[in-house]
Amino acid sequence: MDILSTKYRITYEAFSKLSGRINKARNIEELVLVISKNLKYLIDFRVFRMSIVLDNNAHSFSFFAKNGSKLEMNKLSSFETNLLEHKIPIRHSVIPDKFNEFIDTTLLNNPVFWGWFIERDTLNISATILSDDIKVFTKMDIDIMHLLVDSFCIKYQQLYLSKQLTLKNKSLKSALKLIEEKKKEIEKILGQQQNVIIDKTKEVKLKNTQLLEISSINAHNLREPLSRILGLIEISEHYNPDQLNEHILKHIRTSAIDLDNVLKKVVKKSEKQY
């Protein structure tokens, strides 16, 4: 049995446990915690960093040997941009300044900086490792590291898309709620307008009735005294002045007063209406 097989035997259980926990992670925070806690059972490293380009954004994750992790958005370092562009693996002793943010690199014994470009479906990934003589990363660890990056990135993409979907659903729901509120407002305005129309219609109907009443007064009440006056004038030719004064003028006065009363009534009704 070669050394590589032995190594796989030792790390097999840890990797299988880690895969199970990655699958069970319900959100990005849990996923990062699972990786942070279990990396030490798989490989030796000082800093392990993965940057995933997703939706034109760079999502970077840095994990530290002494437990702990850091998540950054759109903070690609130049070595990562180069890796993503040229896709050429790196292995040298010049440590990028970026790692000073995470660890005092002057304390490392013979530090080695490793880097790979990894392409998975629609994802472009930069994976980098800082190791030294104490936390030794070797060529034998590369396959395990690739498997780890695979598992992590696939799960991360799934959780990220699910989060985006939840956010979109949330904003759709709030838009729907707004539409519902506006609809209610419109319905309320329509209801109010309908009431106004009903009131106005009632008012017009009432006025029409009153107008009809006035017309009726005009037709009947005015006609009657006026006819009487016209009739009296008609027969007045056949009377001498004394007879006219005694019999006709008296009736004309009475009819004129009646006519005047009816006219007053009409004026009063009209004034009431308007």
Partner: peptide, 10 residues
Amino acid sequence: IYATIIPESY
């Protein structure tokens, strides 16, 4: 002896 195959944490 197995320094390169057993992770340091082990």
